[in-house]
Nucleic acid binder design. Structure first.
Length: 464
DNA sequence: CGCTGCGGGCAAT
DNA sequence: ATTGCCCGCAGCG
């Protein structure tokens, strides 16, 4: 099924996928006639070949919060997804979405970030680690070879070739957070998830990945990822995830995962929690949030595959171990995580990350986000095609309000719309917010949606 | 102040 | 030996 399709789709989408190569190959393939369009939110097992002139590629940027990891190989840069920061209580934002913040890349900054509280409900913030890659954080590899910059997500990772195995989805879902502090939102919403186990499925979460997250500095920390509306989720396919522009998501597989992980995380996080910055930034309240929509929830359930979310979401109550957030959060809001698909399907979805946009930059970033998402891309593409890049598009995207949740037609729907980054509108407000990026929550869903997975496929094409 | 890359070093596999 | 991860350092914006 989908798997094939997905793959195809993926390939279709990028030149990098049309060639057979692995980041670890002694010799990389010759430069393609055309380079891939830079993707900020790569999701799943994907490979791209960028021009060495591509600035973002030069910087190894990603919408997902990716941190450099020492792979003891000076020729191949390896980065692993940090996951997503969410409200422990998974409170619902006014727009129905959940907060999803982009974890700060810097350890120190991340700690500070976690010490802050949810702008919306003042509960602690929690970092949900990415486990999109077979329970491990989604990883991205960068390699400069001649005039080409090779990008590979997933594969090498521990698991071993995704391709074959396929990585897991990483769904990290980063949850979004939107947060607005202002809002008062009851927690309730989140709960929607049907499922019950929240955690369990580590995998799922992992999936999120945000990796795909990925992360550009640009969005520096603060980004918030908005959760996508439920719709979105559904809409979004995994693929979308990518689609989702939002940075939001991170992959955090962990969330789901094993408690252990969580435990750790949580523990840490808890400690940390805090948003400080965000809050300010977040004024969202004032701003319009765009997101909104969340209705849904629905989708989350779907994720069944990944379970993670669901699990998370599902539980209404908080588990001691788990941070409440997980439970809830998931539900309504899916975290945005990257995922790499491990299983059969190759697809990988990313959640879409919401890129964190900076206010100032929002636009750009927004764009990038858009552009980035693979899956989403595809979807997006359809929706927005590269245009994303165009400012106009960006804008929209940025606008939180808007659109968020778009659905994509068919399977693919992209969430992107959701993407809208509040920022735009918000941005002004945000000032401080600087970085927040909001993301629609959707991406997570995407993951879940494995079903949709099929969808994913679709997106790829887009690229170009 | 935070992001990023680099590389040492440790632990688990 | 490989991999994952932590940590500190330095450069940069």
């Amino acid at each position: 099924m989908p798997a094939d399709a997905l793959q195809d789709a993926g390939r279709a989408c990028s030149y990098g996928m049309t060639l057979n190569w692995d980041i670890n190959d002694p010799q990389m393939p010759p430069e393609p006639a055309h380079f891939d369009h830079f993707r900020e939110w790569p999701n799943g097992y994907v490979r791209f070949i960028y021009s060495s002139d591509e600035k973002k590629a030069q910087r190894h940027l990603s919408g997902w919060a990716m941190r450099n990891t020492n792979n003891h190989n000076g020729h191949i840069l390896k980065k692993s997804c940090l996951g997503v920061v969410v409200c422990v209580r998974a409170c619902t934002l006014p727009d129905g979405s959940c907060l999803q913040l982009r974890p700060a890349i810097c350890d120190k900054a991340r700690l500070k970030q976690q010490k802050k509280v949810c702008p919306n409900c003042h509960s602690a913030l929690e970092l949900i680690p990415c486990r999109g890659h077979s329970g491990y954080p989604v990883t991205n590899f960068w390699r400069l070879d001649g005039n080409a910059i090779f990008f590979q997500a997933g594969e090498n990772q521990g698991s071993g070739g995704y391709i074959n195995n396929i990585p897991p989805l990483e769904s990290l879902e980063p949850f979004d957070i939107l947060t607005d502090m202002g809002f008062s939102i009851p927690e309730q919403s989140c709960p929607s998830f049907p499922t019950s186990d929240a955690y369990k499925a580590p995998g799922d979460l992992a999936a999120f990945q945000g990796d795909v997250m990925p992360p550009f500095q640009k969005y520096p920390n603060p980004r918030i990822y908005l959760p996508r509306p439920p719709y979105n989720y559904e809409l979004a396919d995994p693929g979308y995830s990518s689609s989702s522009p939002y940075p939001i998501l991170y992959k955090d597989p962990s969330s789901i995962p094993p408690d252990t992980d969580r435990a750790r995380l949580n523990a840490r996080q808890y400690n940390v929690n805090s948003y400080s910055g965000y809050e300010r930034s977040l004024d969202f309240t004032s701003k319009p949030h765009g997101w909104k929509p969340a209705l849904g929830k629905a989708s989350l359930g779907e994720r069944a595959e990944h379970g993670q979310f669901q699990a998370m979401a599902t539980h209404p109550y908080y588990n001691p171990e788990l941070p409440c957030g997980y439970l809830r959060a998931p539900a309504p809001c899916t975290p945005a995580l990257q995922t790499v698909i491990t299983t059969t399907t190759k697809v990988s979805y990313q959640a879409y990350p919401a890129p964190a946009l900076k206010y100032g930059d929002n636009v750009h970033e927004g764009k990038s986000l858009l552009s980035c998402n693979y899956a989403s891309d595809s979807a997006l593409m359809s929706a927005y095609p590269e245009t994303l890049d165009s400012p106009a598009s960006v804008t929209r995207a940025a606008s939180p309000v808007g659109p968020l949740p778009l659905k994509l037609p068919g399977d693919c729907q992209v969430i992107r719309p959701s993407m809208v980054f509040p920022q735009e509108s918000a941005p002004s407000r945000m000032d401080g917010a600087e970085t927040w990026a909001m993301c629609p929550s959707g991406w997570g869903s995407a993951v879940s949606y494995s079903d949709r997975a099929g969808l994913f496929l679709s997106y790829d094409s887009e690229d170009f």
